[in-house]
């Protein structure tokens, strides 16, 4: 085990019934980098992220997070997980939601900063069920990072977020990475992929390619990341 890695996934298999969702995935995320997980619908991105935070157990292989074999409850206080669907308490206000997730992680002092970041400080009193979809997504992000985790797992965090805020999110992600936080971000959006330091392309539960955006371009033989991605995906299929 190398201490330079925040996440070390080795030859992991995961089946749901007879369906193989993850089929021997190996990937390593370095500390302090932004790692982008790309792949079509059903590729296994969410399953991989849930595996990293110990929500599902692998049928084979090992998952090591921040130096500890998962599942390990002690590591969880250093992980922030933003689920793909905004998982919030609809009857609670924005602030009450964020404060709750802060409290269970023992970090009540981060509430104001987290709400400021997602620009919901003004709306902190609004009940979540009355928010727009994008605002819920922002509130969900605030809940994931309120305890300033060392490893932030973001499952399609910018879906439904308007362009201005999306730019601000990525600025913030980069600042967090610069401060030493490791981010794993799943996405379908190629201009977001370009902002990651490294990318992993997943399809059919396998890692197709891994490397910096430039590496991926070279491997796919195209200057356009999207085309490179489609080329890599197609090559494997045929």
């Amino acid at each position: 085990m190398n201490d330079a890695y925040a996440v070390d996934v080795e030859e992991v298999f995961k089946s749901f019934g007879s369906f193989k969702a993850l089929n021997g995935v190996t990937l390593r995320v370095r500390k302090g980098e932004i790692y982008g997980l790309l792949g079509p619908n059903g590729a296994g991105k969410t399953t991989l992220i849930r595996l990293i935070c110990g929500l599902v157990e692998a049928h084979g292989g090992t998952v090591t997070v921040l130096g500890r074999r998962m599942p390990d409850i002690a590591v969880l206080r250093h992980i922030g997980y933003m689920t793909q669907q905004a998982a919030l308490y609809p009857a609670l206000s924005v602030e009450e939601n964020v404060r709750f997730f802060a409290a269970i992680n023992g970090a009540e002092d981060g509430v104001r900063e987290a709400l400021g970041l997602v620009q919901l400080w003004e709306r902190r009193g609004s009940v979540v069920s009355t928010l727009s979809g994008g605002m819920r997504q922002r509130c969900s992000l605030a809940c994931a990072l309120v305890h300033r985790p060392e490893l932030l797992l973001l499952d399609e965090p910018t879906v439904g977020i308007d362009p201005q805020l999306r730019v601000q999110f990525w600025d913030y992600f980069r600042r967090m990475a610069a401060d030493g936080t490791t981010l794993v971000v799943s996405s379908h959006v190629m201009d977001e992929a370009d902002r990651c330091q490294r990318l992993g392309l997943i399809q059919y539960g396998r890692l197709l390619a891994e490397g910096s955006p430039a590496d991926i371009r070279a491997q796919g033989g195209s200057q356009n990341l999207e085309e490179a991605f489609l080329a890599l995906a197609g090559r494997r299929e045929s």
């Binding site: 929500l55 969880l76 992980i79 689920t83 919030l88």
Partner: peptide, 14 residues
Amino acid sequence: SQGTLERLMASPLR
């Protein structure tokens, strides 16, 4: 069903 249990499980809560 609203997914918050998943979040609780990914937190240090026992």
